[in-house]
Each structure stands twice: as structure tokens, then as C-alpha cells.
Design a protein around this nucleic acid. Structure first.
Lengths: 192, 192
DNA sequence: TATGTCATGTAACTGGTTACATGATTGC
DNA sequence: GCAATCATGTAACCAGTTACATGACATA
């Protein structure tokens, strides 16, 4: 069954609802919370996607008990649709790495500023590793059939962050010495 | 000097012209060729960016010798502008990893299809490593002050591709056995 | 003289973000 | 009663892609 050209927002929305029925507002929170380290959706996308999914019969709206809003739950056709979407080939997003763009033209920028960029990247990688550790702790308590799959996404993040950190260290070491005083780096040897 | 909110297309365009003056058409080819493994621009972006840069005095247009079009070269203000742009903090692009999105909901998709996704990723990582090796060979011949910086971007790609390949292997091994006959995976033991 | 490549641009569309408008419910 | 949060949406905008229109030059 070919799936008509679609944004992956639908996948994220139906996927999140496959775990648990919830409101659009909670959906956003869940996407930030659970998928945040590798996926992102904005409000402006979620509600229209939800409306389309409702029109297509993929989700059903139930009046929420004590709260004002409504709760959306995945229907059987919706689950089937989700399976189709997940089976779609992964389309590679066009690469746009701002760090590498700067480093590529590093000789215009100077070694000192490049080292700063690399130090930044290294630090962010370290912070990412901490958040992954926290996610791992949370996942340890849960016991659902999806857990092994969720863990895969965490180990991906960890592996990439560790590699990034190591590369940033090595790269900074491989950079030429900075002879330019305007960037404020200390000279390699002491002055009298 | 704060740089007004800008797209990074300008950085790529001015950066490429800092290496060598060329036409808009050649610029596109150079961006694909040299930055292709971590950056991407389309025609629809390049010409407007070039026109804006010309209006701002960052590039100068010279009549091309034997060809019909013109050749753009970076001016001194343009080089200064490029330095400012490169010094801008790297803004993290909102994460959108289609592979992880699929794996996260892997229990809906089934282990067999997940293994296929991982095998795909592993193969693409292997192919990427080959193209990096080719880039390395090309860079070996050149001798310009930017070479150490360009090599950094290659080693980044190599490190990430190697990590991706290894993770994909480990992940496939960690997946539960596939008991679902509809996905067409062979059973772990022989049948009588 | 036909074909391919170099070359320059524009217009329409798409996907996505941001900011705003609006109101219900809950807890203090 | 007031503030915070839950909740649902829309409108305007922006970045970026795709497809198209156009033509010069080289060469077979």
C-alpha cells in the first residue's frame, strides 16, 4: 500500500497516540518529553495534523472527563495507517551542519575561534550524555513491550554524543597553533 | 558586531567565494562538491543570496572572459562580513531523525521491519565511509592553508559513520526475535 | 543545425514556526 | 477573586524546494 506523500508529523502524532490516548496539549508535551532528543513538532503542526487525522477516521475524539478539552484516541484504521507510515523508507533530511560549515572555512575564522566552537560542541555532547542517563533511569522502571525499541533510540544518542565529544577533543588538538593576538589566546611559551 | 538575523546560506556563499571567485552556477556545483557531505543549498537560494550580497557590496560582479555569464568575487567588506558570520554561535537545528522515529514505535512495526531499517542504515554508513575515503584522497594532493580545517569535517563524517554502523549492528542484535510470520522472516529453528 | 551544458533568474508551492486570540479549569 | 496552567485553534510569516522560462555558447 503506497502512502501518499506526507509529512512525518502524522507519524509522530499517531505514534504518540498509539501509546496512550490524550489531548492535543498533552500530545505536544509527550512529544517534547519522549521524542525530544531526536524529534520535534510545534503547536502549529499538531492541531492541524490532529484535525486531518480525525477527518480521515484515524483518531476519535472523546469528551474529556474532568477537563475542558477532549481526548484523542487511535482507531483501528489509525493503527493500520501508523503501520504504513512507519514502513515508509526513511528519507534523508538534507544535511545542514552549522558547526562543520564554520570549521570548513576555519582558516578565515582563525584557530582560536575554532577551538572555542569545538569546546562548545564538546560541552554540549557532555550535557547530552547526562540527559540520556536520566532517560535511561526513567525507562528502567517502565515495563511495556516498546521498551527495547525506546532503549535503541537512547543508545543511538549516547553513541553519537560520545563520538562527538571524542572527535571535538581530537580536532582541537589537531588544529594549528594560534599566532593571532586579536583572538586573545595565550602564546604557547612564556614571555620574559 | 552583532550580525542581523540571517540564513546560513549567506555564509556558505561568501565562504565558497573566499576560496575562489566563480559564477553562480559554478558556486552551486562547488557547494555540492565541497560541502555536500554536511551542507546543502538549492538554486532558488543561491541566486537571491548572491543578489543581496552584491547589493550589500560583499561581492563584486566581473564580466566572465569566454563564457556568457559573470564571475563573482569576494570584496574586502565581504570577507569581513564572512568573518562575522562564521563567528556567530552555531544554532542547533531542530532534531528530526526519521530512523529513530520509526524505531521508537518499533513494537507497532515489528522486529523484522526494524532489522531492515537498521540494515539500511548500516549500509548507508558503509557507503558514506567510502565517499569520505575518496574525499581524503582528493584533499591529500592539495596544499592550501584551509586543508587542516577541511580534514576536520571529513574526520567528523568518518567518526559518525563508523559509530552509526556499529550501533546499527548492535541494535539489530539486541532486537527481540521475530515471531510474526507476516513479515516473512525465517524462524530461528528448522521445521520438520 | 541540433544537442548538451553553462548560466541566470523567477513564481508557485510546501512545510514549518511564531505569535496571537480565546476560554475553561484548578488551586491558592 | 486571581493566577497559573490546560486547552484549542488560527493567521501571518519565513525558509527552502521545485519547476519553469530563458538564452548564450560549444561541439558534433
Amino acid at each position: 500500500v503506497p502512502v501518499a506523500r506526507t509529512s512525518q508529523t502524522e507519524t509522530a502524532v499517531l505514534g504518540a497516540l498509539s501509546i496512550e490516548p490524550m489531548s492535543g496539549y498533552a500530545l505536544r508535551a509527550a512529544i517534547v518529553e519522549a521524542l525530544g532528543h531526536f524529534w520535534h513538532e510545534s503547536f502549529g503542526q499538531i492541531y492541524p495534523a490532529l484535525a486531518r487525522a480525525e477527518a480521515a477516521g484515524h483518531v476519535r475524539r472523546r469528551a474529556g472527563g474532568r477537563t475542558s478539552g477532549s481526548v484523542f484516541e487511535l482507531t483501528e484504521p489509525g493503527r493500520s495507517r501508523l503501520r504504513d507510515l512507519l514502513a515508509e523508507p526513511v528519507e534523508a533530511a538534507p544535511a545542514r551542519n552549522g558547526l562543520l560549515l564554520r570549521l570548513f572555512f576555519g582558516d578565515v575564522l582563525g584557530p582560536g575561534a575554532c577551538r572555542e566552537l569545538l569546546a562548545d560542541a564538546e560541552q554540549r555532547a557532555g550535557e547530552a550524555l547526562e540527559t540520556y542517563a536520566a532517560i535511561r533511569r526513567e525507562l528502567a522502571d517502565e515495563d511495556d513491550p516498546g521498551r527495547p525499541y525506546r532503549l535503541l533510540t537512547v543508545s543511538y544518542g549516547e553513541a553519537m554524543a560520545r563520538t562527538l565529544r571524542q572527535w571535538a577533543q581530537d580536532a582541537a588538538a589537531a588544529l594549528p597553533e594560534d599566532a593571532d593576538p586579536t583572538t586573545g589566546w595565550p602564546p604557547p611559551t612564556a614571555q620574559p
